[in-house]
């Protein structure tokens, strides 16, 4: 059975992870490569690096970060944040990304999705949608949630899929950072409208929030950042929690054989 994916998000600035680095005794938590190594050991399914600065001067540093993370994991690696054109996407993929995520640039220039899908295949093109509840619908915001658009999230998700996007990374602006749970209504509305996978993001605070978004929210994957930074084994424990509640996830062999101990 196809597993529900658990994706760790690294918000990176100047080569360092900027969220949730206050876990005591984990000195390397700010280093994206060290954090990726730990997540890989704990059983993460995929890693997303979001460059929260993404200025021209910082792009070379970003390429070094992507390369360093790619050396640590043999898992799908997605890079997003400030990818404006094909050259930016090329640089990220050249540095070791398997997928690129586009947000503001995709709304401004939807044909970019098609161009990148032709070049790298749809599986390499993720459209990131930041949505906020407004007037009974879900309005899209761009520029890191700062600027409202006239677009509706469900309708844009369908268009993006038609134009060649292979997955949707859907963030609820209302829930982001609140730890009050994913927006399951938003996620289900988009997931039911498209045939490509939907990655839910924004609001993860407890393990049960993941159960909710995989059942009521009909998400194919869920992404979080700080919930994984805080505690060692958080990824392993989350997967065990989901497994125990009947949500299909990729487990280590220790789980299938029924042994209680964690993997070495």
């Amino acid at each position: 059975m196809l597993s529900k994916r658990i994706i760790a998000c690294l918000d990176v600035r100047d080569g360092q992870v900027v969220k949730g680095i206050n876990f005591e005794g984990l000195r390397s938590a700010g280093d994206p490569a060290a954090l990726s190594r730990r997540y890989n050991r704990e059983g993460i399914d995929e890693v997303v690096i979001l460059d929260v600065t993404a200025t021209i001067e910082k792009r070379k540093a970003m390429a070094r970060t992507i390369h360093a993370v790619a050396q640590e994991i043999f898992l799908p690696l997605c890079v997003g944040g400030g990818i404006k054109d094909e050259a930016h996407a090329d640089a990220a993929i050249e540095a070791g990304a398997d997928k690129v995520s586009l947000n503001t640039a995709a709304i401004a220039r939807p044909e970019l999705l098609t161009a990148l899908a032709r070049r790298y295949g749809s599986q390499a093109v993720i459209v990131a949608i930041d949505a906020k509840r407004e007037g009974g619908g879900f309005r899209i915001y761009v520029r890191s949630g700062q600027q409202a658009t006239e677009r509706d999230a469900v309708e844009w998700a369908q268009e993006a899929a038609d134009r060649g996007a292979g997955e949707i990374l859907l963030t609820s602006i209302d829930r982001d950072g609140t730890k009050s749970g994913f927006d399951c209504e938003l996620t289900a509305a988009v997931s039911e409208a498209v045939s490509i996978p939907v990655i839910a993001s924004g609001g993860a605070g407890t393990f049960d929030h993941f159960v909710d978004v995989f059942t009521a929210g009909k998400a194919d994957a869920a992404l979080a950042a700080s919930i994984f930074h805080y505690a060692e084994h958080a990824v392993t424990d989350l997967k065990q929690h989901l497994h125990d509640r009947g949500v299909p996830v990729r487990m280590g062999r220790w789980a299938r054989t029924g042994a209680a101990e964690s993997p070495a």
Binding site: L2, S3, S195
Partner: peptide, 29 residues
């Protein structure tokens, strides 16, 4: 039946079922 909609493309982690022995699958359960 299991409550999951089968989206196409098939994206993500899924299980291998061993059909027969082969050196290719050494160490794979």
């Amino acid at each position: 039946a299991d409550g999951a909609l089968f989206k196409v493309p098939h994206v993500g982690w899924n299980s291998l079922h061993r059909k027969r022995d082969s050196w290719v699958l050494d160490g794979v359960e």
